[in-house]
Design a protein around this nucleic acid. Structure first.
Length: 492
RNA sequence: GCCGGUAUCGUCUAGGGGUUAGGACACGUGGUUCUCAGCCACGGAACCGGGGUUCGAAUCCCCGUACCGGUACCA
């Protein structure tokens, strides 16, 4: 088949928000489609009416959009093989199920679900029990009686003797003996299809060529293969990707902390970083590259690179990716993403958009390598954006000592006279100033830092002063001098 | 229980019949330096166990073990 004919899909069930596992599956499908110039379909599997909801659908769409995973067919964009909500395709499933009954690949089952459940539980340990085919053995009279009594009926597949094999692109050939497969329900008595039916009917209708999904579906695949065969339709290619686990190697769940993409968005992760990180969870380009742009991922992606084992979600590495992507992002773009956060913190003023724009960009540049997450900008930019300094008590005590009062006061005067007020000019001036007073430059700089930022850590002092400007620098150093003079020497 | 899958540093992984088993995160130590971050260098750290095949197994095969998944009128 040609590349352009490749069609893949992501088919989430809207019973929760988009979690990282689903996002990773969506990403693999999307990367595969984009790599081959194929089509990426988004389909909502909302046949479980009890657990599905509209809000969840929009949450999932938002999550995908945030990650930059766009779909060629699906909700909101439509497409030639819609509708893309399973709840709107019920007739398709019913027709398929009835067809299978007509062709004797399936049969009606009038068994009461509660009774079946009881039988199941009554069986040895409740495990391994298979449907006893009560309804397959029904005589025409018995069937007529049940129909006459208007008993609700489900449709079950008549699983033949034998075994089913299929080739998984990640794991090779997989075979399962039908002895371990019961006559599974494909249409519930309420007329809704079960997953096995709807997924197969839709994948056929939507011309899906490659089914790329989580490993949790691997055991279900033989059932679906049976359905493809019964429906007389060729199989798509299957690729089952490993699952994402928590640090305890258990399947990632809420108790491991944040599991929804929205949560990571909220915490200040870049979608670029999330995508990069997720792509490398269970997939490898085959070489030593780690940092990828979206386009580079598209160019490098292939199903062959998917590994077999499950992968533990490592938040430390995600954070590293985030910092790396922040550093690589164009300053003006980063500034744009930072703005809402700064605004929210009450530190924004509109001059930063026009007259002060260059200054704001310089600040962002300075902070770039220091941001692990976007919100880190608030505390780090605060000394630059506000004149209300929150002095770190320990830092004040350590560096704004009485003996620094004099030097700081003099430094303020020196700064007031330094021109131009830029880092290159300030550095020799300040170092010379310290030397002239037999002070270690470091000592003076530390004191100046606390005076000017209130903290023990900040960007380089000369850059900091330059960015602050002469006026604010002088005022803050003066104030620092006063604080130093007023501080009580450590008693020992 | 039964069925299926997986197994390389703590974690993500590359590799794969003969390699000093490579990279990344994290960690540790240095360096750059005014602090922090970043950056650079260095370091510790792995082929689940047992059999077999082979001149040679971490790699191929079998068994075991562990873990994950499935075993529904959930998806």
């Amino acid at each position: 088949m040609t590349d352009a004919s490749i069609r893949v899909r992501f088919a989430p069930s809207p019973t929760g928000y988009l979690h990282v596992g689903g996002a990773r599956t969506a990403l693999f499908n999307w990367l595969f489609a984009r790599r081959h110039g194929g089509v990426f379909v988004l389909r909502i599997e909302d046949t479980d009416v009890e657990r599905s909801s509209e809000e969840m659908v929009s949450g999932i769409l938002d999550g995908l959009r945030w990650l930059g995973i766009d779909w060629d067919e699906g909700p909101e964009v439509g497409g030639p093989h819609g509708p893309y909500f399973q709840s709107k395709r019920l007739e398709r499933y019913r027709a398929a199920a009835e067809r299978l009954v007509g062709e004797e690949h399936a049969y009606y089952c009038y068994c009461n679900p509660d009774e079946l459940k009881a039988k199941r539980e009554a069986a040895e340990g409740g495990e391994g029990w298979r449907y006893d085919r009560t309804c397959l053995a029904l005589t025409p009279e018995e069937v007529a009686a049940r129909e006459g009594a208007r008993l609700p009926r489900a449709i079950r597949v008549r699983v033949p003797e034998g075994a089913t094999s299929f080739t998984d692109l990640v794991r090779g050939e997989i075979t399962i003996d039908h002895a371990h497969m019961e006559d599974f329900v494909i249409l519930r008595s309420d007329g809704h299809p079960t997953y096995h039916l709807s997924v197969v009917v839709d994948d056929i209708d939507m011309r899906i060529t490659h089914v790329v999904r989580g490993e949790d579906h691997i055991s279900n695949t033989p059932k679906q293969v049976l359905l493809y065969n019964a429906l007389d339709h060729p199989l798509p290619a299957f690729a089952h990707v490993p699952l994402i686990l928590g640090p305890d190697k258990r399947r990632l769940s809420k108790r491991h902390g944040a599991t929804s993409v929205t949560e990571y968005q909220r915490q200040g992760y870049l979608p670029e970083a999330m995508v990069n990180f997720l792509a490398l969870l269970g997939w490898s380009p085959g070489d030593d590259r780690e940092l990828f742009t979206r386009d580079e991922l598209v160019a490098a992606f292939g199903l062959e690179g998917i590994s077999g084992g499950n992968a533990v979600f490592n938040p430390d590495k995600l954070e590293w990716f985030n910092n790396q992507h922040i550093m690589r992002m164009a300053t003006d773009e980063l500034a744009g993403r930072l703005e809402p956060l700064v605004r929210e913190a009450g530190l924004w003023h509109d001059d930063l958009r026009d007259t002060q724009r260059a200054w704001w960009l310089s600040l962002v540049d300075l902070l770039k390598p220091r941001l692990k997450r976007l919100p880190d900008v608030v505390e780090q930019a605060r000394p630059f954006l506000s004149d209300v300094l929150a002095y770190d008590e320990a830092a004040v005590h350590k560096y704004l000592t009485p003996q620094m009062a004099g030097p700081l006061a003099e430094l303020a005067a020196t700064l007031a006279a330094t021109t131009p007020f830029d880092a290159a000019t300030l550095e020799p001036v300040i170092r010379g100033f310290a030397e002239a007073r037999a002070l270690k430059a470091a000592t003076l700089i530390h004191a100046t830092r606390v005076a000017v930022t209130g903290k023990a850590a900040s960007p380089g002092m000369f850059d900091t002063l330059a960015l602050l400007g002469r006026e604010r620098s002088v005022a803050r150093v003066r104030r620092g001098a006063a604080m130093a003079a007023a501080s009580v020497p450590r008693q020992t």
